[in-house]
Amino acid sequence: MADLSKEQYLALYRQMFEIRRTEEQLAKAHQAGLVHGACHTYVGEEAVATGVCAHLTAKDSVFSTHRGHGHALAKGVPPREVMAELFGRVTGCSRGRGGSMHLFSPEVGMMGTSGIVGPCILQATGAGYSAKLMNTGAVGVAFFGDGASNNGAFHEGLNLATIWDLPVIFVCENNMYATEIAFSYATRNTNMAERARSYGMSAVAVDGNDVLAVYQAADEAVRRARAGNGPTLIEGKTYRTRAHSEGMPSLGTYRTQEELDAWKARDPISTYKAKLLQSGAAAESDFEQIETAVQRLVDESFEFAKNSPYPDPSTVSNHIFSAS
């Protein structure tokens, strides 16, 4: 196990648990009609965002994709702002202009999730360019799925970040399916790290359900970036255990119950908890305390979001331009 303090171990647990509980609350809210549009949950993939964002500060920029609630939460957006955004309320992190797929909170370095697969790779490269030009020591981080790796943005972004030695971390969450198209169908080379290395950059594949493995890989990648030694791709092999989007069938025609059950047995949160208990790094009472506190936070966040006002329709044309 990584050599972390008890507080650090538990902080990782707390973050994953917060994402899980928030997502479960959002799924319920979607069923209740409180989420007006799409809702792609991050359930099963929490270890990746958690392990990476543990190394980031507010000056570091995260760019994400349509499955981005977990990235926003791990980057420090409060659950109530994420929930309120999905409920279309003015208190949401994008003030009701974005929804599930457009979560913005530049105050904490959450530079947006995107409904289009791929652009986050290029934008994180640009954040790296800004950091290098202005010498800020910041890094740009892109979270994206295996689906994005067959998009032109992947080729263009990885190549640019490499030739200019930009401080960028490309985090590919390989959950095996682009919506419902298997990664093994979509490419003849499923070795993501090897594909990244072909551009001349550092790359590593880790168990994306093992938060400590992600944490260690990200630690190295962030250090490399901050030291001016260029980008890294981290492939986290993981799995989403809920449907692509809430309301869609969880198995569909593309995966089996056996596969789903096998991945659920490797749940990143419960396996991590068992590991910490077994090693004596934390006690049952530590977890109870965290779980109670997180549940309270999520409950309060839900009430806050549900009771928040909708935006004023007269503001609909505000913010198209900088001075408006």
Binding site: M111, P119, G126, A127, Y129, S130, T136, G152, G157, L160
Partner: peptide, 27 residues
């Protein structure tokens, strides 16, 4: 750094400049 020759990569450099403009520079 300020006069940056690029490969032939129009989508790439527009997307890259988008991220740069979001993070404090003026491409």
């Amino acid at each position: 750094m300020r006069l940056r020759d690029t490969p032939i990569v129009e989508r790439g450099f527009i997307g890259m400049c988008t991220g740069a403009a979001m993070t404090g520079t003026r491409p």
